[in-house]
């Protein structure tokens, strides 16, 4: 697990949203330099290749939910430091930096809202917070969201983007895989729909647990999704990886996901999924 790299969020943002004098951005997929306004006005899609630029949490909520319907839960949950972990910097010090930078306490936002007037519970990972890594807070918020989904028989939608487990929490971060999976198993027994939407990138401990447990699993076009990071695989097998490896299209081809959904069609597709899996239709 823990395939995210130190400082990778900044590097990633630089790479992906390479800002050229503010008006232009570079597509991480086709490398075309495109007009930012055009991207912003069309769900943040690359006008050349259709790559889906990463969305911030507020942008994701805008794309997903009925305007003004979102109510956040557990926003005040903050991580402890079970290992008193320090590498070149202390874990708590690092957390503080990311909390200041993002205005969030940890790497996920959960809450309830409405999608085409139907209630839905959502969890949205924030890659900008330590690479969207899953530690105790992410695990806890997913479990609590699942509890509420059972209570209200409300469908649960999880939007993932993560480098994997948060290694600064050591074994406790690994255990978040077990506890979120256990929460999904309870949701399953209660007959409440769980949908996961995998976005670029989703790796490691998040993929190998909650992300791949959706009743229906959707992904955004060209999103990189996998268990092991591409560099780890290359170092292990000493071969170059084939083109398109671990992209959403590759996962669809291999039967790992149900569908690839572009952002303009997302609400409509989710509504249809909930209609077919949810109560009362």
């Amino acid at each position: 697990m823990g395939w995210f790299q130190k400082g990778s969020s900044e590097e990633r943002e630089k790479g992906k949203l390479n800002i050229v004098e503010g008006m232009w951005i570079k597509c991480a997929f086709c490398r075309a330099v495109v007009y930012r306004k055009e991207v912003d006005q069309n769900f943040k899609l690359c006008p050349k290749c259709g790559y889906h630029f990463p969305l911030s949490v507020p942008e994701r909520l805008d794309v997903l939910l009925d305007p003004g319907s979102f109510q956040e839960w557990d926003a005040d949950l903050s991580p402890g430091d079970p290992l008193a972990f320090t590498d070149t910097q202390s874990y708590l010090g690092r957390i503080e930096i990311y909390q200041k930078k993002t205005g969030r306490r940890d790497a996920i936002v959960t809450g309830k809202g409405k999608l085409q007037t139907s209630p839905v519970i959502v969890g949205i990972f924030d890659f900008g917070f330590m690479g969207g890594s899953m530690g105790s807070v992410v695990g806890e918020k997913i479990c609590r969201a699942a509890d509420r989904a059972i209570e209200g028989n409300t469908p649960f939608l999880l939007v993932t983007t993560s480098g994997g487990a948060r290694m600064q929490e050591g074994i406790l971060s690994l255990m978040q895989m077990a506890r979120t999976s256990a929460a999904m198993a309870r949701l399953h027994e209660a007959g409440v729909p769980f949908i996961s939407l995998l976005t670029d990138p989703t790796f490691g401990g998040v993929t190998a647990s909650v992300a791949m447990l959706g009743d229906v699993i959707l992904a955004e076009p060209k999103a990189l999704i996998g268990f092991a990071g591409p560099r780890v695989i290359e170092q292990t097998i000493k071969q170059r990886l084939p083109d398109g490896f671990q992209r959403a299209e590759f996962l669809l081809e291999h039967g790992m996901i149900d569908a690839i959904v572009s952002r303009p069609r997302l609400r409509q597709t989710l509504h249809s999924v909930f209609r077919h899996l949810g109560a009362g239709v």
């Binding site: 077990a178 999976s181 909650v210 097998i237």
Partner: peptide, 26 residues
Amino acid sequence: GAYPGIGAEERGQARAIAGNLFAMSR
């Protein structure tokens, strides 16, 4: 650790592990 290879990814290493966590919990 679980094997990080091309075939492992193609055949769903992540899903296989997740499936075990899910099933073992119940």
